[in-house]
C-alpha cells in the first residue's frame, strides 16, 4: 500500500515539476507556420504584435498552422484536442492556470480551432471567441491568412484591454465599434429631429381650429338607430409565405461551437 502511494506521488512530482521548468527555460515560437501560409515578414509582424500583447496583458498567445492536423494525431483526436495538446505539450501558458490561447488552422480539411486556457477564458468568453473568430473567418475563407491573423490579434487586443480594465466584454457588455457608436448617435439625433418636427407640426396644426366635419352624427335622433339585418359572408382566403432570413453565424457556416475540455479550457472551432 505504502509503495503504491509513493509511486503515485513520484509520478505527480515529476509531472508537476517537469513542465514548468521546461516552460520558463526555453524561448517558444508564438507563430508556428508549419503549413507555410505566411511570408517571413508577415510572420515577423505577427510575432511582434503577439510579443506586445503578451508584455501588456500577460496572456500567452499562439498561432499555429499545419498542413493536416490529423497526421499528428494518428486519427484519434479532433481539432480541439489537437490544439489543446499542442498548447499543453509545448508548455505554453502563463501562471498556474497556464492562461492563454492558441489558434490552430489546418489547411487540408480547412479546420480551425481557437483553444482558450485558464484566466484567458474570462477575457475571451463565448461572446468574445465568437466575435473574434467570426471576423477572422471572413478573411480565412478568402485565403487571406496574414490579414485574418492580424485582424484576429487586433480584435484580441480589444478583449484583453477590456479585461485588463476589469470590465471584460460579454453579452451584457458588448463591444462598441465606431460604426456602431455612430449608428447609435445617428439614431438618437435622427429620432430627436423627428420628435422636434412632430412637436412643431403639432403646434402648427393647433393654430388652425377650423376643421370640417365630414359626418353629422350629432344630429342622429336618439335611439333611432336600428339594424334590420346583418350578414358576415366568408368569401375566400389567400395565403402568402415569405422566407425567414437566416442569421449567418459561425455554427451554420463552419459547424463550430464552444466546448469545455478536460483542463477547464474553452474555445471555438469549425471549418472555414
Amino acid at each position: 500500500m505504502k509503495k503504491r502511494v509513493m509511486f503515485v506521488l513520484m509520478v505527480l512530482f515529476l509531472f508537476v515539476t517537469a513542465v514548468p521548468v521546461g516552460a520558463s527555460a526555453e524561448y517558444r515560437e508564438r507563430v508556428v507556420d508549419r503549413a507555410g501560409l505566411l511570408s517571413e515578414s508577415e510572420e515577423e509582424e505577427l510575432a511582434e504584435k503577439i510579443d506586445d500583447l503578451i508584455d501588456n496583458y500577460n496572456m500567452d498567445i499562439v498561432i499555429l498552422t499545419v498542413g493536416d492536423y490529423t497526421q499528428y494525431t494518428n486519427g484519434g483526436m479532433g481539432a480541439r484536442e489537437f490544439a489543446r495538446s499542442y498548447y499543453a505539450d509545448n508548455g505554453y501558458g502563463f501562471d498556474e492556470e497556464n492562461s492563454g490561447m492558441i489558434l490552430m488552422v489546418s489547411l487540408i480539411g480547412r479546420d480551425w480551432y481557437m483553444y482558450i486556457e485558464g484566466e484567458a477564458n474570462v477575457a475571451v468568453n463565448d461572446y468574445g471567441s465568437e466575435y473574434i473568430t467570426d471576423r477572422m473567418l471572413e478573411k480565412l475563407k478568402d485565403d487571406k491568412f496574414a490579414e485574418g491573423f492580424s485582424g484576429y490579434l487586433d480584435d484580441l487586443e480589444l478583449f484583453l484591454k477590456a479585461y485588463d480594465k476589469g470590465k471584460p466584454y460579454g453579452d451584457d457588455h458588448p463591444v462598441v465599434t465606431t460604426a456602431k457608436m455612430l449608428k447609435y448617435f445617428g439614431i438618437a439625433i435622427g429620432a430627436s429631429i423627428v420628435l422636434a418636427l412632430i412637436i412643431v407640426l403639432g403646434m402648427k396644426s393647433g393654430m388652425n381650429t377650423a376643421k370640417p366635419r365630414p359626418a353629422a352624427r350629432e344630429y342622429v335622433k336618439q335611439g333611432s338607430f336600428v339594424l334590420t339585418s346583418q350578414q358576415d359572408l366568408y368569401l375566400y382566403s389567400n395565403t402568402t409565405k415569405t422566407a425567414i432570413p437566416k442569421s449567418s453565424s459561425s455554427s451554420s457556416s463552419g459547424g463550430g461551437g464552444r466546448s469545455s475540455g478536460s483542463r477547464g479550457g474553452g474555445g471555438r472551432g469549425g471549418k472555414f
Binding site: 335622433k221 333611432s224 338607430f225 336600428v226 339594424l227 339585418s229 346583418q230 350578414q231 358576415d232 359572408l233
Partner: peptide, 9 residues
C-alpha cells in the same frame, strides 16, 4: 359584410 337598418336625422 352587409348591414341594413335605419336611423333618423
Amino acid at each position: 359584410i352587409n348591414r341594413a337598418g335605419g336611423v333618423d336625422f
